[in-house]
Computed example of a mutant assay.
Amino acid sequence: MLTDMHVAIIGGDARQLEVIRKLIELDARLSLIGFDQLDHGFTGASKERLDEIDFTDIDAIILPVFGTNSEGEVETIFSNETVVLTEEILSQTPEHCVVFSGISNTYLDGITNATNRKLVRLFERDDVAIYNSIPTVEGTIMMVIQHTDITIHDSNVAVLGLGRVGMSVARSFAALGAHVKVGARKTEHIARITEMGLTPFQLANLAEEVKDIDVCINTVPKLIVTANVISKMPAHTLIVDLASKPGGTDFRYAEKRGIKALLAPGLPGIVAPKTAGQIVANVLSQLLLELLQQREENE
């Protein structure tokens, strides 16, 4: 149980509602910032403004999946209030306070480093990424069905990258009857693709591998679907880019060429916010319990 642990949940989307429910079950004391327009009332949680919080009493801060922007603003879809997490605010928290975010950026890294506060990037954890690959795959399948006029079965699909998401996407499209080839750089990934019964290729040869594809699904967070690559694709090819913003595709050239290219990061929160929220909530609750246990052992 998280009894007497004071947690500030700042902003977020529908996924954060599952986090709130889970932490209330564990008897944590919650301050909700950026939720003033939320109709749902949570017993055991109080809606507050940022300037009303006594941060000297905060044990953990939970940010949305995307953390802050480059100016420190936190997305708050349940409020019109502009919420900015600053170095000054963090410096008021106890030394043991931990900041949780899905991903980070230079700004968030900077203020946590400057205040010597621990920052946990949830989406860098293997467990979160693997669980999240499930709704990501379902959302990708949905997008391909919506934006093509052919069946997935018997289509030619290229998946770029064999990370945690790429592996799940490749396996699922193959299970639906697609002819799947997977591009990777590491020799061990090439071996794994072969073991999975799929067709491997080196990403260095990408331009040669896209000449007959119907769908290109990118998971690599760097520009690899370049103008040169897109110029070799059939006109009907659909590109679905699952990499974090700005993606790994030259979207300007794709539009110029008339090829449909969709940037689709954060699919779990779009297609299955309840499940995506439960994934984050379960991992967060475990991490907070471990944090509490460590504090009790040190006291």
Score class of each variant (00 low, 15 high):
residue 71 E to W: 06
residue 103 I to C: 04
residue 222 K to G: 03
residue 279 I to M: 05
residue 271 V to R: 07
residue 164 R to Q: 08
residue 150 I to L: 08
residue 42 F to M: 09
residue 11 G to T: 07
residue 176 L to V: 04
residue 53 I to K: 07
residue 45 A to C: 09
residue 190 I to G: 01
residue 291 L to V: 03
residue 38 L to F: 12
residue 285 S to P: 01
residue 103 I to L: 10
residue 211 K to W: 02
residue 163 G to E: 05
residue 61 I to S: 10
residue 243 A to Y: 07
residue 262 L to Q: 00
residue 11 G to R: 10
residue 83 V to N: 03
residue 214 D to R: 08
residue 142 M to K: 14
residue 200 P to C: 04
residue 105 N to H: 07
residue 89 I to A: 11
residue 97 C to E: 04
residue 231 S to I: 01
residue 204 A to D: 14
residue 197 G to R: 13
residue 42 F to H: 03
residue 91 S to Q: 08
residue 120 V to I: 15
residue 138 E to C: 00
residue 140 T to H: 06
residue 214 D to A: 12
residue 261 A to Y: 01
residue 94 P to W: 08
residue 266 G to C: 03
residue 217 I to R: 02
residue 277 G to T: 04
residue 247 G to R: 03
residue 259 I to L: 13
residue 127 D to V: 15
residue 23 L to W: 04
residue 291 L to I: 06
residue 245 K to C: 03
residue 110 G to R: 12
residue 272 A to G: 08
residue 172 S to Y: 03
residue 56 T to D: 08
residue 51 D to M: 12
residue 263 L to E: 05
residue 85 L to Q: 07
residue 241 D to G: 00
residue 33 I to K: 15
residue 80 N to G: 02
residue 161 G to M: 11
residue 109 D to Y: 13
residue 181 K to V: 02
residue 10 I to T: 11
residue 167 M to Y: 11
residue 79 S to F: 14
residue 208 E to T: 10
residue 235 A to N: 14
residue 246 P to Y: 11
residue 137 V to T: 15
residue 66 F to I: 09
residue 186 K to W: 08
residue 292 L to A: 11
residue 87 E to F: 08
residue 172 S to M: 04
residue 170 A to H: 11
residue 21 R to I: 05
residue 269 G to V: 00
residue 285 S to A: 15
residue 204 A to S: 15
residue 37 Q to M: 10
residue 183 G to E: 00
residue 151 T to N: 15
residue 79 S to R: 13
residue 49 R to M: 04
residue 213 I to D: 01
residue 113 N to I: 03
residue 201 F to G: 07
residue 192 R to I: 09
residue 38 L to Q: 11
residue 212 D to A: 14
residue 97 C to I: 13
residue 28 A to L: 10
residue 4 D to F: 06
residue 168 S to Q: 13
residue 175 A to Y: 09
residue 294 Q to L: 11
residue 39 D to R: 00
residue 89 I to R: 06
residue 126 D to N: 15
residue 147 H to C: 02
residue 68 T to C: 13
residue 235 A to M: 14
residue 92 Q to I: 03
residue 146 Q to N: 12
residue 265 P to G: 02
residue 287 L to H: 01
residue 274 K to A: 12
residue 76 T to E: 06
residue 133 S to Y: 04
